[in-house]
Structures are given as structure tokens and as C-alpha cells.
Amino acid sequence: MKIMAPLLIVFIGGMLMAFQYYIDIPLLNNIYKGVLDWHMVIAVFALVIAVKSLIERQWKNFRQKTEHPVYPLTTLISFFTVVFLGIFFGLKQGSPVNFIYNNLLVPLQATIFSLLAFYISSAAYRAFRAKNFSSTVLLIAAMIVVMGRIPLGDLIATWTTISISGKDFAILDFPGWTRWILTVPNVGIKRAFIFGITLGIVSTSLKVILGIERGWLK
């Protein structure tokens, strides 16, 4: 029962929703609309799990002293402070939570991500080597796109443009080469990836519906 009931729900729900895409029956259509409404309400409560795991993990780190207790405490205190401020003062523009959002959350998240700019420059110097044929192709394509996406690439193309029998032709046409790489070989390989990913999603979906994939029950 503990396993059968959820499996049955998944099977019936999955089958009904999979078929409704192909079969136009009013009843099935109404069920579809109802299911979408239910999803929105149920998703609200799924949040409990996320909050639970965050608090549980931080509390465990604090109790077991796997790291300096200041760090899990910082997370817990900042979490509860924001929550209490929100409950007492609301979330409107100008509220304390909105103030924290604008002055701490937004700039600090942006700063964390900006570290990646430094790492990519360091990686360009230390790891981007033409070691064999494949890495040389990768490097050349990357450098063409790098030049093709900056205004200097446009300028170089203009400077090196010559006229052959009335037709303009750029010798170093980085933007043109970039466009070609992106719209021709890139489209081919990304399309292959899209096929692979989509077939993977569809087959996993079928495995879930048929009860072959049961990892989510653990």
C-alpha cells in the first residue's frame, strides 16, 4: 500500500495527462485544467520541504561542529530575521525586507557571480592550450567568436573590406565567421543535443509513469 498507492497515482495521472495532449475530449480537457490549478496550490506547500532541509542541515552543522558554529548560525539568524521582518512589516516597496533585498541581496549575489570573470581570465591563460587537433579547433572557433562579438571585430571587417567586381568582401570578417559558426555547425550539434536530451526526458517520463523508475519513492 505504501508503495502501490503513489505508483498508482503516478500511473493514472501520467497516462491521463499524456493522452489529453493528443485526444480532444471535453472531459479530459477539464481534468487537464483542474490538474493545472491543483499544481499551483500543491506547489505552495512543497516549500516546506525546502525550508526543512535548509534548517535541518544548518542545525546539524551547528550541533555536530563540522564547521565553525558562526557560519550555520549566520544562515539561520539571517533567514529568521528576514522572515520575521517580512511577517511584521510586509514586503511592499520601502519595507525593511525590500531594503535588505535592494541593498544586500541584489548587489551581493551579483558580486558572487562576478568572481567567474576572474576565473575565466585565469583559465584562458593557464588551460586554453592548442594541445591537439580538437583543442586547436575549439580555440580557433572561440577566438573567432570573441573577436566577432566585440565592436572591434566590426571595425576590422570594415577596414579590411575590398571590392571585387562590384561586390564588397571583407578579408577578416570576424562577425561573418561568427554568424556562420553559430548558425550552421552550432545549430547542427546543438540540435543533436536537443534530440538526445528530449529523448532522455521522454523515456524517463515513461519510466516514471510505468513505475520502472522509483528513485523518488525513497
Partner: peptide
């Protein structure tokens, strides 16, 4: 971008 290209070249 020019710096990155120079870094790749130097590397």
C-alpha cells in the same frame, strides 16, 4: 576580450 586573447596567446 582583447586581454583574454592576449592571455590565450601568451599561455
Amino acid at each position: 576580450h582583447i586581454l583574454i586573447m592576449l592571455l590565450v596567446l601568451m599561455g
